[in-house]
Amino acid sequence: MSALLARVPRRTVLPAVAGIVLLVVAADAIGRLGLAGAAWPTVTDVVDYLTSPTAQTLLGRALAATGTAAAIGFVAGGLGALALALLGALLPAAGPGLDRLAAVVHAVPLIALAPLLVTTVGREGTSTVIAALAAGFAVFVAATSALASTARAGRDVFAVLGASRLSTVLRLQLPAGLPTIVDGLTLAAPAAVLGAVIGEWFGARRGLGVLLVSAMQNVQIPLLWSAALSAAALSLAAYVLLVALRGWVTRRFT
């Protein structure tokens, strides 16, 4: 983390900090003046709540549940999507069919899929599966275009060397496409968190999604905001990690 921050130029840090301060002050002002009604708390209310031990246990447990579901979904969805994209590159005849399948799966709203999943994979598995679907689509689109966009010069070299399709995919297209694939991962990580939270709305035992629904129904405003902030923090943490990975991959593979 410190190594990552060290790489950020000072020029971009100051405006970023100023922006965050401005946002917090504005949010607090809206809460104090009651501009957005009773459902908009002051920042101090939320911070007060976040520092209480009960809230920390509650949120910590929910974060762990959602984080696990999102992480498993991210890895499983990402690997599955990468495998499908590689299959499409190895069997060009299957490519358009796979593209269409992915588009159809993506066109079904995840929220409509959830009740269906609850009855098939159960309440606990639903959030992981939805996270996997959400992350998988982002990875599939990125990986398919990454594998297809290898420079012609490189393909020509492999063609005249008499390389098999498998060898070309593994030794040329995949490493050349890695930066683009990691781009897809940076989009897939927040999608996995979102998918996990949505999945939890449909009766999971714990998780940020559960907290969001119950806090909303019981008008626990600080809890509602704390849960939402936790979900955002989880997304952001995953994103920051992957941006760091992208930096490394770009330096190593281009």
Binding site: A153, V157, R171, T254
Partner: peptide, 8 residues
């Protein structure tokens, strides 16, 4: 003309 070496 383009060397097309593997950059990695």
């Amino acid at each position: 003309q383009e060397h097309a070496l593997l950059p990695w």
